[in-house]
Design a protein around this nucleic acid. Structure first.
Length: 488
RNA sequence: GCCUCCGUGGUCUAGAGGUCAGGACAUCGCCCUCUCAAGGCGGCAACACGGGUUCAAUUCCCGUCGGAGGUGCCA
């Protein structure tokens, strides 16, 4: 059996969005699973839409995702170049070969005229089809006009009757009446091939055996097969992938500014988590496992697990999965990753960055949540006194005032400001006084954090704040409470 | 409009004639607990509809409806 060769063929028109990432991942996984070769090819035949730097970004994204390609623009290979603009000269001869075979013909129609009739067709609710005006031009006359420098394109000559079809590994046999097909442009007036043509030529000449791509190509693939047949080339295996939707009505696309892979990384999602999540969008392993490393995915990936219907990108679930990945991170690694985020709100990470990070570790779903969780340590937030009211903790502003007055001297008496010391000073005293833990600790935590919830309990927060800051916050709280409890 | 594809809870999905329709996220409740989170336990929640075929349809067929993709000298 010949070696499997798959490719990911993005156009450098922007960043790598999640749909693209998933397509790339499946093509990669399929190749790896079958001990095949995964290729990156840049499809930059559209000069107008090209975005500078996009190719580099695409390559960087793939690298970050761990989807290493065996052949590609920057790594070389025996089938290069891997950028279509660098292959520009190879397409025209193939196009002329088709012209010779009667499967294509030069067309001299003015774009303006076609645009007009297209607009008219749309107005009338009809599908525009090129009227084949140039099909009847004799070959030698067409040659002459081309040689004389007249502007032209080369169109595929779709058979007049019959059906065009192809077999898809996922969707089965797909067939369409050729009367539905347009004589699409193969070579543009600027000398570049269209995607429709270049992808066929390149997939063939790069020896691609399995084409994995989104279902947006499902309806144009019969036309590609006609091309393969005209050339007499062996057809690849087609594996179309259901689209990833941004919401119920829109496919994920860079044109709409949907999140790119790198956006997500920038927000503090782990690449492994994103890959894991995205792999499960439209594919399942056949059992109920849902955590996979890339290596494990390489083993587990099968075509049978692919689904046919589009799926929606659910950031919620990604966030959950990311949290799971973060929790499983060795602490040292977490600390390293978390530190820059901590620095954004707490210079140096505060009094004990390590301890803070330990407390944060199990509570971080996405790294960008860290500043929000730690900000209160550097700046005491404004808060409403209603925070002191907590039914379960049996606390309200009056209780809080009492509890803080009770806790204040105890805190003052702690010299060795550690969590253990704070704990040992407070707990027995609370018990002895006949108060409930929550009655004291809830108000204390609120007084020093101003928050409903914090990445630690009262003693942990007090420790992180330090003695001076803790006491000054308690004092301030006491003042507010007494003003509130005894108006006038 | 036309062509192609798709249709299990809010979301991702298992299911390939007979299942209490399973799992995960989200959500709700309880437990644990110095808050929150995590964790444990439990709840709510789905086969789009209508015809067939069959002893039996979520599962097979047809239709309807709904959704998406395509309909570019974009990819």
């Amino acid at each position: 059996m010949p070696q499997v060769r798959t490719r990911f063929a993005p156009s450098p028109t922007g960043y790598l969005h999640l749909g693209g990432l998933r397509t790339a991942a499946y093509a990669y996984l399929y190749a790896r699973k079958r001990q095949g070769v995964f290729i990156l090819r840049i499809e930059d035949t559209d000069q107008e839409r090209e975005v500078p730097g996009a190719e580099e970004q695409l390559r960087r994204s793939l690298k970050l995702a761990g989807l290493t390609y065996d052949e590609g623009p920057d790594v070389g290979g025996d089938f290069g170049p891997y950028v279509q603009s660098l292959r520009k000269d190879i397409y025209a001869p193939y196009a002329w070969e088709l012209v010779e075979k009667g499967a294509a013909y030069p067309c001299f129609c003015a774009k303006e005229r076609l645009d007009q009739s297209r607009a008219e067709a749309e107005r009338n609710g009809l599908t525009f089809k090129y009227d084949r005006r140039c099909l009847s031009i004799p070959k030698d006359e067409a040659r002459r006009r081309v040689e004389s420098g007249e502007k032209y394109v080369i169109r595929q000559h779709i058979p007049l009757t019959g059906f065009a079809s192809f077999d898809d590994a996922q969707y089965g046999h797909i067939e369409v009446d050729v009367s539905q097909l347009d004589d699409m442009v193969l070579m543009k007036a600027d000398g570049f091939p269209t995607y429709n043509f270049a992808n066929v030529i390149d997939d063939h000449s790069m020896g691609i055996t399995h084409i994995l791509r989104g279902t947006e190509f499902l309806s144009s693939t019969p036309k590609y097969n006609l091309l393969y047949e005209a050339f007499g080339w062996e057809k690849p295996v087609y594996i179309h992938l259901p689209l990833v939707m941004a919401d119920a009505t829109r496919k994920l696309s860079k044109r709409h500014g949907d999140p790119s892979f790198e956006d997500l990384l920038g927000e503090g999602y782990l690449p492994e988590a994103v890959i894991n999540y995205i792999a499960l969008l439209g594919w399942n392993p056949g059992d109920e496992r849902e955590f996979f490393t890339l290596k494990e995915l390489e083993q587990a990936f099968t075509l049978e697990g692919l689904s046919k219907s589009p799926s929606m990108f659910d950031k919620n679930k990604l966030t959950w999965m990311n949290g799971e990945y973060i929790r499983k991170l060795p602490f040292e690694r977490y600390f390293e990753l978390a530190m820059p985020w901590l620095e954004r709100t707490l210079p140096g990470g505060g009094r004990d960055p390590k301890r803070l990070a330990e407390l944060l570790h199990g509570r971080t779903e996405v790294f960008n949540r860290i500043p929000g969780m730690a900000a209160f340590l550097s700046d005491m937030p404004e808060y409403d006194l209603s925070l002191y009211t907590h039914k379960k903790m049996k606390s309200d502003p009056a209780v809080a005032a009492d509890s803080l007055a009770f806790a204040q001297p105890i805190l003052r008496g702690v010299d060795d400001w550690t969590e253990a010391a704070l704990h040992d000073a407070l707990m027995p005293a609370i018990a002895q006084s006949g108060r409930k833990n929550g009655q004291v600790l809830w108000p204390l935590r609120v007084a020093i954090s101003g928050l409903m919830s914090t990445p630690g309990g009262a003693t942990e927060i007090a420790y992180l704040l330090g003695k001076d800051e803790t006491l000054s916050r308690v004092t301030a709280a006491l003042e507010r409470l007494s003003a509130h409890n005894k108006p006038d």
